[in-house]
Design a protein around this nucleic acid. Structure first.
Lengths: 155, 155
DNA sequence: TTCATATAGTACCATTTTAGTTCTATTTAA
DNA sequence: TTAAATAGAACTAAAATGGTACTATATGAA
């Protein structure tokens, strides 16, 4: 699976909808536009507000708006906000806190892969997510693993 | 979280252990070497055998061995075997099968990202996972999204 | 002032997924 | 014949997920 939860998927829709509006949008309005349930949208927006990705205004005529321009909101931040930090294995988030640690030969590489994916996601913005793209080429993780000094050429 | 399950993590340990042995190893032996529970290892090996990553031999003196050299077993295959196909969003695995499809502005990009991560994982082998690496550089997904024609230079 | 609108926060529940175990059947070498 | 070993299915407990409900609070406007 290695997949996002539905809520993260929905959250991206919600953020994309907010990106279209310049003014405050209420949860109700966003729900209508995205065809998602209003309570669900409300919950998502609360979480996103808590994470600092959206700003809320309470009271009548209140609502939500993006805290930053869409170009400055990354895919990694969206996932972080709605699912907690990206961690492909459990022990990659908390170093040296695993019973198997002393016997585990493979943790390090999974951690590196996790880190690579995370950084990759941090370079994709909400704008990128909204824009249909023709083709996504393959990031060559294996080449990176084999020859880390190649990094500069890739940036 | 975007993380693997514990079992996939364990499965990698199991495969790494098999890679160390030239002969058949029983589930019991692998369990001892990896410090995992024997029933759990047994279940993992059955699944891995079903996926074709290991070969089993029944009866006394039976056991498991890698179906292919470790260099030819990819991280993507391991995840596929133990968790099903990698799919960062639900609708990325089954095209055009989503209620929100007509309203969903962002599905495509997530699908592309998913595809990129999947391909990246397919280029990391079990050998890479066993070998400690110094640094994993960042695959530049955003650059790929922006200029897909850059692909050739990366391979 | 009052009220309708709207977010904040928490708690809750049903469903699904996950992790792990157990049991029976079958195979095979000694 | 028997012990060792995998095959396969079923089962259970615990955790995560998706969604809802409820109370409290803030604010603009009649």
């Amino acid at each position: 699976m290695l997949k996002m939860s539905k809520l993260t998927d929905y959250g991206t829709l919600v953020l994309a909808q907010l990106a279209k509006e310049s003014k405050l949008s209420s949860a109700h309005k966003v729900a209508r536009a995205t065809h998602l349930g209003q309570p669900t949208v409300s919950k998502l927006l609360k979480t996103l507000a808590h994470a600092g990705l959206v700003i809320s205004e309470r009271g009548a005529q209140g609502g939500y708006t993006l805290a930053r321009p869409a170009i400055e909101i990354s895919a990694a931040e969206i996932i972080d906000a709605l699912e907690g930090p990206v961690a492909i294995t459990e022990c990659s988030s908390i170093k040296g806190h695993c019973d198997l640690q002393s016997n585990c030969q493979v943790a390090t590489a999974w951690q590196k892969i996790n880190f690579g994916i995370r950084r990759a996601l941090s370079e994709v913005s909400l704008v990128d997510l909204q824009t249909p793209v023709e083709l996504l080429a393959t990031p060559n993780l294996k080449a990176y693993l084999a020859s880390p000094t190649n990094l500069k050429g890739q940036q």
